[in-house]
Amino acid sequence: MASIEKDKSYSIAKSARLVGCSVCQKVMRMPVNNEQADCTLCGSRVFFRRPNSISQTLALVITGFILLIPANVYPVMTVLYLGSESNDTILSGVMSLIDYGMYGIAIIVFIASIAVPVLKLLGLLFMVMIVKLKIPLDKKQSAQAYRVIEIIGKWSMLDLFVVSILVTLVNLDAIATITAGIGATAFSAVVVVTIIAVHTFDPRLIWDLESTLSDKKSS
């Protein structure tokens, strides 16, 4: 790691009317009376803060929670084995894995398909609350939490990939067939909505609280 002077007070780009492009990292001076401009290097739109970040994230999080209902109520796949048909929802899939004694996979599927999407939506909701209600939490830890949410997001695609593999693998006419279910469509929508929601949230808003709090203390 390259060493950087670690002084406690950092100068904030926005206060200096500077802005860093999120795409190419170029640092620019924001034109007077403007909150956004076009990057001189890459042409992307640059903002001090992403406009409507909180309301957009909140809207996506609520959509995600609503979509979680059909994703868990409807079957993600239907198994037809030697004439008997069974519909698997995400939760019943985990349950049957436990019944078969496959605890390892049961835990993995539970984490990827149930824990990750729910925690991600709750986490984002919490981030929005922190900003909205100005909850004085440790900023470094909140930033860490946001990064974790960002990284784990894609792992909820796991069960959908499993379904896409099983529909071709178990395609044995009379003996056994596995087909996808409506729940899978709802679930894939949850995944997409949560991934977009992470990127509409502007983490700088959390750190802005710190500067406003310390401003109040000093004044």
């Binding site: 390259a2 950092y10 900023k139 930033a143 946001y146």
Partner: peptide, 19 residues
């Protein structure tokens, strides 16, 4: 080089020699 952190908006001076 002056860099703006995309996550916290801090202005950071990075020494390019080390980079």
């Amino acid at each position: 080089e002056l860099i703006v952190c995309q996550e916290c908006d801090a202005l950071i001076t990075v020494h390019l020699a080390q980079l």
